[in-house]
């Protein structure tokens, strides 16, 4: 294998990692601040992709489509949070799992009803199509590079938001002591709604960005959701830093396992079997890492003891 191919795959892994980070950042904040396990987070990924694809079809403008992928999920997030999710904060995890599982059914069926059962497509804008030559003779997709850059900016933006703004201080206070923040006269339910909408918007953005590479279809959010859960458990629930490191770790591990395991199995078995076994074991690798982390650090890498 050439070094170029290796680096290209490494970049793919990092791109996948940043996409996972967009999903997990919201998930981990929602759990950290409100104590909610939100299985319906994957639905916002799907809603983001569908709204982007719808707006792109209507206007032909990719930037507007991306904007829509932030706004629509946030609006729907606000609606759902203030009508249903809010009632779940004081409930135990079991009720949360079940209610948000039910929300997946509702969102998926509603989307299928509105857009039909066939996948939609979202085109990469002309300016981002094709490849770019990176230093070291590495040819890499412009669009994927843009995803990496967007992810990087959002990570930096979230860092400043959490550590340098009033909202960030409130979020951190909410994670540490919900009772106290209420006593201090901060409008806690408004804070909850903002955090939830922010998470939904980030998930929607991730959905739209990925929707341009894959197809936009019902059920596209759930596989990513499950991986995002793996990410936040590895990183330590509630920690944005943990989510970033966990996401990059999983992104690179998954992509590299997909590259190397089939090659490895080809040495000992025939090609078609090696391919299917290799790719299925590659899917397992992320879960294996999570189990290992939990065995040695039961609250994740950056989780509170």
């Amino acid at each position: 294998m050439s070094l170029q191919l290796f680096i290209e795959q490494l970049l793919n892994g990092i791109q996948f990692g940043f996409m996972l980070f967009l999903m997990s950042a919201g998930l981990t904040l929602i759990f950290g601040v409100m104590g909610l396990i939100n299985l319906a987070h994957g639905s916002f990924f799907m809603i983001g992709a569908f709204s982007a694809s719808f707006v792109a079809g209507l206007t032909g403008n990719f930037l507007l489509a991306i904007l829509a992928s932030l706004i629509f999920p946030a609006l729907i997030g606000i609606m759902v949070e203030s009508s249903i999710i809010r009632k779940l904060y004081e409930r135990d995890h079991l009720d949360q799992v079940l209610a948000t599982f039910a929300l997946i059914l509702i969102f998926s069926e509603a989307t299928r009803y509105i857009f039909g059962a066939f996948p939609l497509f979202l085109d990469i804008p002309n300016i981002l199509q094709g490849n770019i030559l990176l230093p070291g003779e590495i040819v890499y997709s412009k669009y994927r590079l843009i995803i990496i850059i967007i992810g990087l900016f959002i990570a930096i933006g979230l860092y400043f938001l959490i550590n340098r703004t009033l909202l960030g201080i409130q979020i951190k206070a909410g994670q540490n002591d919900r009772q106290m923040i209420r006593v201090l006269g901060i409008n806690i339910s408004r804070l909850y709604t903002i955090v939830f909408a922010m998470g939904a918007a980030l998930a929607g953005l991730a959905g739209a960005l990925i929707g341009a590479i894959q197809s936009v279809e019902v059920g596209m959010g759930e596989p990513v959701l499950i991986l995002a859960f793996v990410v936040i458990v590895i990183g330590g629930i509630g920690s944005i830093k943990g989510a970033l490191i966990g996401a990059l770790l999983i992104g690179v591990l998954d992509t590299m396992a997909r590259l190397f395991l089939p090659i490895f199995f080809e040495l000992i078995m025939e090609t078609s079997q090696a391919l299917s076994l290799g790719s299925s074991l590659a899917s397992i690798s992320a879960y294996l890492l999570m189990a290992l982390v939990l065995i040695f650090r039961p609250t994740g890498l950056f989780g509170k003891k």
């Binding site: 759990f31 499950i226 859960f229 793996v230 079997q273 294996l288 999570m290 189990a291 939990l294």
Partner: peptide
């Protein structure tokens, strides 16, 4: 929540294993 997630992780492993076991 860690118990919920680790049991999910093990189930996902068996799932992907069965998908790959042609």
């Amino acid at each position: 929540v860690y118990f919920i997630m680790i049991t999910l992780a093990f189930a996902q492993m068996t799932y992907y294993f069965s998908v790959g076991w042609t």
